[in-house]
């Protein structure tokens, strides 16, 4: 259940950047090949956010599809998992997209500020 550790990191990073202001919404980019289950992050998020400036914030997760590039012929291949095969027959692929695991942006509640929070 590494999603718990990952969600703690998300909340810590966002809380630090929010500098005491309440957070309304957080957007993540999670790649299909990142090894993280978006549903598990959602499951952990409300619990981890409780008692922080993220409490009650909406969590949006943008899925990033996986793509590989064939080492044999250079073609790009859509990847649903880490195991794929190019149309040319080769399975030696370098991953070029889908490993993203980042916080894209956040929306702050401008009614609060550092002094009143």
């Amino acid at each position: 259940m590494h999603e718990l550790a990952i969600t703690r990191n998300i909340v810590a990073i966002v809380a630090e950047r929010a500098e005491g202001r309440a957070v309304r919404r957080v957007r993540l980019e999670v790649g299909a090949l990142s090894g993280v289950v978006p549903e598990a992050i959602r499951f952990c998020f409300d619990v981890v956010a409780r008692g922080t400036v993220l409490e009650g914030a909406e969590l949006e997760i943008i899925d990033v599809p996986g793509r590989g590039r064939c080492r044999a012929c250079g073609e790009d291949v859509a990847l649903e998992g880490l195991i794929g095969r190019c149309a040319c027959g080769s399975s030696a692929l370098d991953i070029i997209a889908g490993e993203e695991l980042k916080i894209k942006d956040m929306e702050l509640d401008m009614a609060t500020n550092v002094e009143t929070a």
Binding site: I13, R17, L28, L101, K102, I103, K104, M106, L108
Partner: peptide, 12 residues
């Protein structure tokens, strides 16, 4: 507010 922050940045 744009963050573009790697979630595992601290561990990395």
């Amino acid at each position: 507010m744009t963050l573009e922050a790697a979630i595992l940045e601290k561990n990395d």
